[in-house]
Simulated assay, not measured.
Amino acid sequence: MIKRNIQISSKRLAGYGLKVLLAVICCSAIFSCKKNDSPYYDYRNEVQEFDGDILAYLNANRSQYDSMLLVLDRLPALKDSLVNRKLTVFALNNKCFQTAISELNQARALQSKRKLSLQNSDILELDTMMSKYLIRGNYGTERLSPFVDGSYVESINHDYPMHILYKKINASGFEGGGPQVLTFSDPKGSIFVKFWERTQTVAVNIKAKNGVIHILSPGHVFGFNEFVKRINK
C-alpha cells in the first residue's frame, strides 16, 4: 500500500514538473512575441527625402500646415527664405496656432476686447516669433547627435539663440534603439534650463533640397509662451 502511494506521488510530481516546464516555455514564447511585436523592435531611424524645397513640402502637406503658411504669406521675406536659403525648419501644424489664438481670445474676452486672428495680429510680433522656428544652416540629427548637452543655434532673423538637444529613445529591450527625438528650446536669455521654454519633435530628418525639416508636437503652442503677451496689446 505504501509502495503504491509512493508510485502515485512520483507520477503526480512528474506531471507537476511537466506542467512547470510547459509554463516556462509558454512564458518565454509570450515574452519573445511581445518583444518582436514591439513597434520599436526593428525600428530604423530612416531619413525621409522630399523632392522639392522646404516651402514646397509645407504646401504639399497644406492640410496640416495651413496656419503656418498663412503667417508666412504675411511675411514674404521669411517665406522666400524657405525657397532660397539653407535652413533647418521646425514645422508647426495647425493645432499649435489654434491653441495660441484660443488662449489669446480668452484673455481678450475677459478684457472686453475684440477677437483677433492670425490675419490681423501684429505683423512685427509674428515675424519675431516665427523666425525662432527657422534656423540658419542644416541641422539634421547626424550633426546634432555628438553633442550630449545639445547645440545652440541662431534663428534666421534677429540672430536669436535657440537650443536643440538630440536624444534617442529606448525601445523595448534595446537601449537607444527607438526613435530619434529633438528637444527644441527657447532659452529666454537664461543659462539655466529650468527657465527655458521647451518642446519636442514627433518626426525628424525630412530632407528637402535646401535644408531639413523637423516636425514639432501638436501640443506645442506657437510663440514659446509669448503669443498672448506679444499680440494682446
Rank of each mutant, 00 (worst) to 15 (best):
A100M: 13
F97P: 00
Q106H: 10
I123G: 01
T128M: 15
L82N: 01
G140N: 14
K194D: 15
K95E: 11
I213D: 00
R198E: 07
F184C: 05
F195W: 12
T128Q: 14
I206R: 03
G137T: 08
V204M: 04
Q111V: 06
T199V: 09
T141D: 01
S185M: 11
N84W: 11
Q200N: 02
G150I: 15
Q180W: 08
P76E: 12
K113H: 08
L87V: 01
D159F: 13
G177I: 10
D73I: 10
A171N: 00
I123D: 05
V71Y: 03
L216C: 02
L118A: 03
E175F: 13
D122K: 09
P187F: 02
C96E: 05
P161K: 07
Y133N: 03
A107W: 11
F174V: 15
K207F: 15
E154S: 13
G177F: 06
F97A: 00
Y160G: 06
V148R: 07
S117Y: 12
Y166R: 00
M129F: 05
P187Q: 03
G178L: 05
L104Y: 10
S102L: 14
I206E: 01
L92H: 08
L72H: 04
L82F: 03
F184I: 04
G137N: 05
S121P: 06
N205K: 02
H163V: 12
K132A: 03
S172H: 06
A208L: 04
F192E: 04
Q180P: 08
L82W: 03
D186R: 08
Y160I: 09
R114Y: 03
Y139M: 07
L116T: 00
I191H: 10
L110P: 02
Y152D: 11
D186F: 10
G178Y: 09
F192L: 10
E142N: 13
G137K: 07
S112V: 08
A100D: 08
Q111R: 12
L165I: 14
S145N: 14
E154R: 13
S151K: 15
M162R: 05
I135K: 03
K86D: 13
I101H: 01
S121H: 10
R85P: 01
T201F: 07
T99K: 09
L124T: 08
